[in-house]
């Protein structure tokens, strides 16, 4: 990563997402959005695009917007297509001399709007090669409608549509590997990050995504206190546990080259991560030890595969 990161300087920038929005205390999505937008150079304008979801209904409730930049939301499943329309207009108007200056295009969608209902729109926009960044704030379920499972929800997680019952262990299926699917689109830059520590990883990847020409994709972990069932004050701890247990590895794929950007000094057992959240509580009941074992195996395999791809 070429640019220098100075947390103090970044924190002193005029925020692009102002306070006063209506996201919950302890929500990861708000700090993801403000963190990504902070990577914009102050002289550059942006158009921010949202899929319907928590962020959208909490940041732009008529007549108040929390964004300093232009913003558009149109529907749940079309955020990437919407961003491509704005970018197409920019190209057309620029050619005709009707707009000037640099404008960046940044889209935010939750996992429902990205892994599921907006997946086709995202794939199409990436394939067409629009100069845009798509950011998935991944909170691993449909949180805006009250915690329903998505294809991003991890196996065994309890949601309202994958409840824990006498014959069902929470969600039965594995989490879809969306980041890898985006890598398969052969776009210039794909990265997975989280708002962790001093936000260095998130900032540098956001900056690279915003200032790399062509379509770029960021998958960013965004814990949800309501859906994951943790005390609001524990947000930072949970993100750290996710990263240090390799449940949510931090890596980037630049022009096809895989690189792990953070290796835990001591890889924590997945159990530590699972124990921090109510959605996994049933995994700790007597007789359910196999669930934790299976989860650990799954995480280990994926981490090994990532290390192989990144060249050990």
């Amino acid at each position: 990563m070429s640019i220098r990161y100075n947390q103090k300087r970044e924190a002193e920038k005029q925020p692009r997402l102002t306070g006063g929005h209506r996201m919950c205390a302890g929500c990861g999505a708000g700090i993801v959005v403000s963190g990504v937008l902070r990577a914009l150079e102050p002289e550059d304008r942006a158009v921010v695009v949202n899929a319907t979801g928590c962020v959208e209904v909490s940041t732009f409730m008529y007549p108040y917007t929390a964004y300093m930049d232009s913003f558009i939301h149109s529907a749940f499943e079309n955020a990437a297509a919407t961003c491509s329309g704005v970018e197409a207009a920019y190209n057309a108007l620029k050619r005709r001399g009707k707009v000037d200056g640099t404008v960046k295009f940044i889209t935010f969608g939750g996992d429902g709007g990205t892994y599921d209902i907006g997946f086709q729109s995202l794939s199409g926009a990436m394939e067409r090669g629009h100069d845009m960044v798509y950011v998935c704030y991944d909170n691993e379920a449909y949180m805006n409608t009250g915690v329903q499972r998505s294809s991003s929800t991890p196996r065994f997680s309890r949601t309202t549509t994958s409840p824990v019952g006498s014959v069902q262990p929470g969600k039965r299926q594995q989490k879809k590997d969306l980041t890898e699917i985006l890598v398969a689109h052969n776009i210039p830059y794909v990265a997975q990050t989280a708002p962790i520590g001093n936000f260095r990883d998130l900032h540098l990847k956001s900056h690279k995504a915003i200032y790399t020409a062509g379509p770029c994709f960021l998958n960013i972990l965004a814990p949800c206190p309501r859906g994951w069932d943790y005390p609001a004050a524990k947000l930072a701890d949970i993100i750290k546990l996710a990263v240090d247990s390799c449940v949510w590895p931090l890596f980037e794929v630049e022009e096809g080259q895989w690189r792990v950007t953070y290796t835990p000094k001591k890889k924590l057992p997945v159990e530590d991560y699972l124990r921090s959240q109510g959605r996994f509580r049933h995994m700790f009941q007597p007789g359910n030890e196999w669930m934790i074992e299976e989860a650990q195996q799954q995480i280990d395999q994926k981490w090994e595969r990532l290390l192989e791809r990144a060249g050990g």
Binding site: G85, A88, A89, Q120, R128
Partner: peptide, 28 residues
């Protein structure tokens, strides 16, 4: 023509592109 021709993957996206482009200040 000088048009930005966006060959999308569905009509849903073609109307989404038109909405966004028109909102951005273009004729779609």
């Amino acid at each position: 023509v000088n048009t930005e021709y966006v060959a999308v993957e569905s009509e849903h996206s073609s109307m989404s592109v038109c909405i966004a482009a028109q909102a951005a200040g273009a004729r779609a």
